[in-house]
Design a protein around this nucleic acid. Structure first.
Lengths: 146, 146
DNA sequence: CCTTGCTCCTCTAGTCGCTAGAGGATGTAG
DNA sequence: CTACATCCTCTAGCGACTAGAGGAGCAAGG
């Protein structure tokens, strides 16, 4: 340690990755696509992340975990920068995402049911009488599933 | 109609797309990656799909709807061609997929809960007191979700 | 016969959100 | 001073398509 406890504002990208749980190349990628602003650099051209940068990074990570796409996160970040504005659009984005998630869950449950039927009925003999293959081969009306 | 009802074996790619519910470029793509064998062609170099081809196409579509990846479908198709073999690997593939689906469902339910909390608590005032933004900004232990 | 307009052909490049690797510079500890 | 870790930029790849350019074939109407 040279002189930590006192000031020690900014950390290099590896530390930022560790603290945020976002991988190093991913952080650089976010910067490249303009999702995160380019941080300050050292003399030696290395990125230095301040506490503020780290907070944004954590925000992005959390939002990605919730499945928001990059465009949505861009909007959410810019909303965060304007606390006086109405949060109606943030709400709309979250609601839209919630609707998507519910649709996905419903579809996956239908899949689960069909897959369960497949594996339960498979007596694991020859392919000729295999329910898995049979069900897949069945004539199938379009768009029932997925 | 020139002479339909009698023989009328093969259809062009557009018809195949309509009947299978797989889009034209996707059918060509499946051929390109070797998931489907190249069908016969007319003198004028157009693809002609027989009933057998259409059956395979429907099989692939159904499998994709169930979320099997192309590699899994390759295996399932080759199993279908050997009805005398054991169907254990078909069963294994389906079981693996079922496990994946269950994991996805569990994760999505966690997401749903968190998103629901967000939108329910959002009083839709200013961003400053918006729960959606607030929750995203919260310090967050890694890997709880997703 | 000829044009119109549809389907078809091949080929390349783009999508999304990363991830991997090459090839090199910089920083730090022993 | 020499390892070695970490950092830099840049390009290419992943899966499963999708979009578009640029052209050929074909059936039907005038």
């Amino acid at each position: 340690m040279t002189e930590k406890s006192a000031v020690e504002e900014a950390v290099p990208i590896g530390e930022a990755a560790k603290r945020s749980g976002v991988k190093v190349p991913t952080i650089r990628y976010y910067e490249q696509i303009g999702l995160l602003a380019a941080p300050a650099r050292t003399e030696g051209n290395r990125r230095l992340y301040t506490r503020t940068d780290l907070r944004r990074l954590a925000f992005v990570r959390h939002a990605r975990e919730l499945g928001f796409d990059v465009e949505a996160i861009r909007t959410l970040l810019s909303l965060q920068d304007h606390p006086d504005r109405s949060c109606a659009s943030a709400d709309a984005i979250a609601q839209a995402r919630l609707a998507e998630v519910r649709v996905r869950i419903a579809k996956l449950k239908a899949l689960e049911a069909e897959l369960t039927r497949m594996v339960e009925e498979c007596a694991c003999g020859r392919v000729a009488e295999c329910r898995v293959i049979e069900i897949l081969a069945e004539p199938h009306r379009h768009g029932t599933l997925a």
